[in-house]
Amino acid sequence: MSTFWIILTACLAASACSLVGSFLVLRKQAMLGDAISHAVLPGIAIAFLLTASRNTFPMLIGAGAFGLLTVYLTEKLQLRGRLMNDASMGIVFTTLFAIGVIIITLFASQVDLDQECILYGEIAYVPWDLWIFNGMNMGPRPVWILGFVLMLNIIFIVSCYKELKIYAFDRQLAISMGVPVMLIHYGLMGSVSFSTIAAFESVGAILVVALIVVPPATAYLLTERLSRMLMLSVVFGILSSISGYYLALWTNSSIAGAIAVMTGVFFGLALFFSPLDGIFFRKYRGARKELNELSLESGKPVAEYPQV
């Protein structure tokens, strides 16, 4: 049974992250996921200190607030400070993360907030992190939280699909048409923050980036439609979660690490064997094109060429 819970948790985390990650990848802001996943740390720490419990809801709010703050500060710094986008992002998220680290170490004696757990996550403990509601065992808490966040993401993407699409493709056109671009922008960033915090309890602040970036990038190589890219990214997230779990079992290593490795393996496969633009098929096509050109020169059809 614990195997089932662990895999389900991983699948939910991967799906939630891949969905919002797809839009970050398309907007060429993939590393914003990295920034947010680190910058939410003070939000979690403050929520934890204020409520003195590991209640998830305040943590989600704290993390969401700091996620949006990261995005806001990065954009302001870029505009006002005339800095490059990546530089301002680097400044904002490391500063916020450092503040989080200081808060945790300052109050470490009073709180039971494990730094290792935040950085690396521990998905193997999920089956024992139960949600007891009215004395009833409702199953592992992370499953409920991730399920809730995944549902929020799906509702957001389905209801605002056309706005998200035009916002990601042609922001200027969207603004010129009166599409509420800022609302969509901060809605997406809020979703990224929620997904990150919900997922990183299980897979850690570092590996959550792999779930945000790699499955969408893999899907991007394999399709030419946004809707299919979203679905494929979820498929690759789930495949990586399942195969990663068994890889970890087989090698007796970290589950989160193995899942991240598997996202990379699937990406590598797509890179080489994508029927659209994979390296393998490009070579194959290139060779065929050469044959065709040669056959044109010699005035003979391709099929006969090898005999010449």
Partner: peptide, 21 residues
Amino acid sequence: ETVDWNFPVSVFDVVLMGRYA
């Protein structure tokens, strides 16, 4: 040049965006 022409949308999708207004 203002948009990314590798974006995963079809020609029809892009034209349909004109109707979003």
